[in-house]
Design a protein around this nucleic acid. Sequence first.
DNA 1: CCTCAGTCTGCAATCCGTTGCAACTCACTG
DNA 2: CAGTGAGTTGCAACGGATTGCAGACTGAGG
Lengths: 333, 333
Amino acid sequence: MPATLRDVARLAGVSPSTVSRALSLPDMVNVDTRARVAVAVERLSYEPNRAARGLITGRTGNVGLVVPDVANPFFASVVKGVQARARQDDVAVFVADTDEEPAVEARLFRALAKQVDGLILCSPRSSAEDLSAIAAETNVVLINRGVRGLTGIIFDDEDAMRQAMAHLAALGHRRIAWVSGPEASWSSQHRTAGLRAAATARGVELIEVGSFAPTYEGGVAAADQAVATEATAVVAYNDLIAIGLLSRLHARGISVPDDLSVLGVDDVEMSRMAIPALSTIRMPQQRAGQIAVETLLGLITMPEAMPPLRRSNALTGELIVRNSTGPAPSPKG
Amino acid sequence: MPATLRDVARLAGVSPSTVSRALSLPDMVNVDTRARVAVAVERLSYEPNRAARGLITGRTGNVGLVVPDVANPFFASVVKGVQARARQDDVAVFVADTDEEPAVEARLFRALAKQVDGLILCSPRSSAEDLSAIAAETNVVLINRGVRGLTGIIFDDEDAMRQAMAHLAALGHRRIAWVSGPEASWSSQHRTAGLRAAATARGVELIEVGSFAPTYEGGVAAADQAVATEATAVVAYNDLIAIGLLSRLHARGISVPDDLSVLGVDDVEMSRMAIPALSTIRMPQQRAGQIAVETLLGLITMPEAMPPLRRSNALTGELIVRNSTGPAPSPKG
DNA sequence: CCTCAGTCTGCAATCCGTTGCAACTCACTG
DNA sequence: CAGTGAGTTGCAACGGATTGCAGACTGAGG
């Protein structure tokens, strides 16, 4: 039903090859011919069939995006960023959700790999080997994950923690609790390291509290332990945990920020909706998605010209001060 | 690089057509032949090239999903549902985000239509004409939107409002405020109608408060007007608005639910994280996504056998009582 | 007038599966 | 022993676009 290349050719009175060239290599064809073709294309509202083109060029014009959970606001933002940037270049994006099950991932990666020119992976859990294996099959850009030899977009977790510490120290906090995320998580490791370094640098006492699920429930669970440290401020691995903390603290009648300051990381949508509105370090998630697309597109067109992961161009966060952090309470007595 | 049908044929010592049939019409080929093919397929880890297949069958094995905003938790859940169900049938899904700009939609729809067997559209804003136009080009299933002649998955908004009213009436509320969503929104219209009917049925006084953006900010903006109605309970068009209400009420020192009850609709992730945890009517978003896929797949394979929208199989909501609703305060004096 | 380079265009092969049709085998019937 | 039919398999065309190669045409130069 939709017009084909031949239809256009017939209408324009030229051969199919000419039409093809008029569209993809415009300056290989005569100006008038090109104009005639353009008219025909317009009249038939012709659009090349991507499958047919892909068959011969080997390019699909699609990319895949895999995230652990689209309902997690952090990843939702990444999706949005990828989305928006991809549209600019007319590439469509397959989105897949692994439901946080690493087992699903491998199968999923394979299935997707066939249908795309490249993959953007947010895969905090998968092993470096698995990731490398996929990268052998198709172009891959990682987000928030560093794997030797692979290209990745990362956030500057160390710097974020430095900012966190600077903010809290300035408020007079000298004893700070850290609620870490999953041990296997790349960024949790980096945040922990960054925070330790920053604490040492400022002579602040850092008490690390277990390792918790990066969720609201994780935060609820962590709250009592955080309180027990007798710290005057707590920084959470991410906003979801921080919001869980807020909830439990409220239930226990502990006032934030008067009794205890809470600082999150990420700045997901809902952070500003929390009560009190959550202070946090904003990580540019949409921008990460956008850059991931650009990098991937580069990787696709110029295979070997792309630099692997470089720490130096990690995306830096930005301190967002809202109402969950305040001056350290003066020591009683 | 990856193995083709011919490679398999050669290895199995049969013709390509036989391999093709062995895979797609297994009982048309002899058992031993089939076995030989299976071995070859296995050894080469062959996977049919979808583009090539699509070229001749006219099917791509892909579906498209368009939502106004993936970062909105309501739509994120829908995406998740679609996602999960689609994977079961090995169909990949293109996800596109219109950024709430109806202008983008038309272009986007067209672009996607070429590459998929069908489209699932969450498009509260687009006009019925635009939607019908797309439906003429490809298979379409609407979510949360009824358009004459098109297939759609809808929520039973009237019933949801009946449940809302039953809950609040049981708590003794006799004067209730309704914060509606965008006027153009299909579901806002239905919820308004449903609530009116339920209020009348129970002899409850319903005060309608303007029309607000279906966002946190919308809720913040609506709060003072809701308070001014002197209602003892307010039901919000959706949870996001309800959470905005909560925030502003907290700021004004109005206690929820002691002074005022707040009830949302949807039950998005973050509702249980609100303080106080939000009572709401849960709308089965993931299930809607899942059913949308099933319906679409049906539409694709059996073009004319699908019934259009039927009010009777709308998805019903479920009352989730948390802490934002309580007994009506006894009249002072 | 012929040659040669330079432009532009067309032919035909190709990408990889699918499928209508024909052919062939084999067993069985009449 | 010819004939019928079911069960298998192969041939070849096809879908829609791209591209190497060759041919046509133009104009300049000899």
